[in-house]
Amino acid sequence: MMSRNRVIPGFGLSLGYATLYTSLIVFIPLAALAAEGISLGGERFWAVVSHPQAVASYTLSFGAALTAALINLVFGLLVAWVLVRYSFPGKRIADALVDLPFALPTAVAGIALTALYGRNGWFGGPLEALGLKIAYAPAGIVVALTFIGLPFVVRTVQPVLAGLERELEEAAASLGADRWQTFRRVLLPALVPALLTGFALAFARAVGEYGSVVFISGNMPYRTEITPLLIYSKLEQYDYAGASALGVMMLLFSFLLLLAINALQYWSLRRQGGG
């Protein structure tokens, strides 16, 4: 199975190191979390994670994260496309701005967005006049999560798009394909792995976000209370095990979802005959 690529050296070294580092930084600490959660025992674990308030928070956390990741998928591709393919005044500044959400502490982002979308904010006032409530409503959570996940799709698609060889598009065009066909049949398939990666990362990042969301969500139980906040309130009661149980559930969901996305990506690469 591995023989085909055996010419390339470094299999043992690169993967060995990657696995060791992943274990030390990610796997062992997460195992500590799992151990703490499991220490509750099956019945209590289930009682904690299946509590209606917890279930309502999963729906909100995952729903808002998926919505935000979808928005970022569409607009991230658009932004990456415009930044790579077109030239316009201020392009470099626009490019530089994309990473802003990473650098701004999430709490600052939350405060700034709440100020903008609150009742007396630049956007919030007019929107509320139209009957749209953003801050202190689920929509506000989506806004915050879109903000913090914005760089992912742009930055994963950008290098791949820049690296695509134009001959392919020229060939497609010379064979009579129109621009939309070329995009759909030639460009999009090549971009799918990067798009999926960006989507997965934006989603993953959004699911667990705490700092920016607590400011804008209003934190109302059953309505705008995200799972990380529930975890936080368990910790306030020194209930480490209960907090860990919820953490384990979130991890499990995220792991399965990410695994599905990565499998999809693998499959799309295979279909193209790469990888």
Partner: peptide, 19 residues
């Protein structure tokens, strides 16, 4: 392995500190 690498993003910062 890829999914494990992604996982730290999905871990809530509250949990990331807790672990």
């Amino acid at each position: 392995l890829i999914t494990l690498i992604d996982l730290p993003f999905a871990v809530s910062p509250v949990i990331a500190g807790l672990i």
